[in-house]
Design a protein around this nucleic acid. Sequence first.
DNA 1: CCGTGCCCTGAACCTTTGTTCTATGATATG
DNA 2: CATATCATAGAACAAAGGTTCAGGGCACGG
Lengths: 217, 217
Amino acid sequence: MEKTAIDQLSEPQQKILSFINTYMQENDIPPTIREIQHGAGISSTSMVSYHLKALERAQLLNRRERRSRGLVMNEPRRANPRDMVAIPLVGVITCGAEPVPTPDADTLAETENTVHLARSMVGNADGLYALEAKGDSMIDALINDGDIVIMRRETEVKNGDLAAVFLLDRNESTLKRVYKEGRRLKLKPENPTLKPFYVDARHAQIQGRVVCVIRRT
Amino acid sequence: MEKTAIDQLSEPQQKILSFINTYMQENDIPPTIREIQHGAGISSTSMVSYHLKALERAQLLNRRERRSRGLVMNEPRRANPRDMVAIPLVGVITCGAEPVPTPDADTLAETENTVHLARSMVGNADGLYALEAKGDSMIDALINDGDIVIMRRETEVKNGDLAAVFLLDRNESTLKRVYKEGRRLKLKPENPTLKPFYVDARHAQIQGRVVCVIRRT
DNA sequence: CCGTGCCCTGAACCTTTGTTCTATGATATG
DNA sequence: CATATCATAGAACAAAGGTTCAGGGCACGG
């Protein structure tokens, strides 16, 4: 029974809470005491302060003392909103031929198409870019036409990582799980019904690691 | 050549920009002028103001006049941070037997595991829940062990939607593209190398629509 | 040499904003 | 009834915070 009884808050407190929420929706930053006062129809700043203390006791928000706009909402349902990453959608993976494009700074700057993901899904944003899969050729990586592949530009990967590998002798790139085995690489399709195969490590070049695959339907 | 040349900003301006970014990462709200002053090692508030004006001209940020913490970052790479959805991870899709769990309000409230996605990826948050795929049995839907499937609870779907269908006669559920054809349903595996098959519409029950599939590696 | 465009200093000014204090009812609580 | 406790009003204070101004140095091209 110790859950925060959001329903049995006094009416002004409910008003304050909902005002704060809509305000933050619109402005991205918390309101000031006086903005709350007017927005929630409270008569004085001291009353706002009074109610805020109550809401703080009820664990519905925290405050940073004496900082302007020092409200911090306690909403477990909402992740840290800053934790979103925009990933540039820089190109297309086609039949496997031609190297998967690895973008440079210029192409990144020109990209207007982006994919948004929570940072918790992809970690650090450095070197991330997104590719759209075209055609059925990536089927052995369980990737379908239209899927979005999130890549991180890297030249080395750990054993078992799913990576984009450019095969010099075939002049094509492919997405496979990579394992170093002496001076050759074992490339294992993501599709468990298919067999792995092997290439000379000197004829393969790691282009990036697959961080995430997304299929929108 | 009219692109915002982020590289040729003066050193103090770069410092200010990067300070604002780290500050907002940590605190969720923009810094004050004086916080910038100290954080970026600027000698006076007027200098901060001066540089902020320059950055504003360069379209790198906007300001709300005379509002405390009135900075608004202009980062095309960052979406509206409020547009993130937390989706409860309610269960597991196993071998296909037993219905895919469709959560009720209670189980939703108890969920502590959530998947965060940009609203732009999934649309409305209503009825969304997430399932983790276990085993290789979903291979014909191009879904692998460990993949996260984002579902929206629905009982009707449009032709061609990827949906979870519970087959009464086999007592199992499966993810397939669904097409109505008279009084039977065509169920088409997501894997283009496999053939579709047909079931009597009265023996099939739509449980939800697949909104998105996510593979983290 | 002079204007122009930066970058900078130091200070002052005034609004915004968080906090606090006193006084006043209303409502129980014994 | 006396006395806590809660909700409220109004005002004032002090600190935080945004803005502005007068002035100085430095480089560079006319």
